[in-house]
Amino acid sequence: MAMKARVLIRPKQGILDPQGKAVERALPALGFAGVSHVRVGRMVELEAEDGADLEGLCEKLLANPLVEDYEIETVPGTSSEGASATDPSSARIRPGVPGSEAG
């Protein structure tokens, strides 16, 4: 059976995150006061067979463990077949353009 999972990837504490800083600096100009410590990461959604080595996947590809931390959230029992049409939570998950990491 397949399950859905979300992988949250963020820069490790102590590593300068210029994207987060830029967002944080932009907020007061837009009238959002009192927001600090903004850090920008990314989220990967995927479906995997039970027993898939998600941690290995993160260590080897999705995250760079030297500079990024990751968290895996699984939603057990979410079969990929049939669920997407009826389950409102999975209906929110739309295929789209992956976040463009400029390089």
Partner: peptide
């Protein structure tokens, strides 16, 4: 060794 991260100035 090491990793390459986004430029600190966020610009190309």
């Amino acid at each position: 060794p090491g990793a390459l991260l986004a430029n600190d100035g966020l610009r190309f």
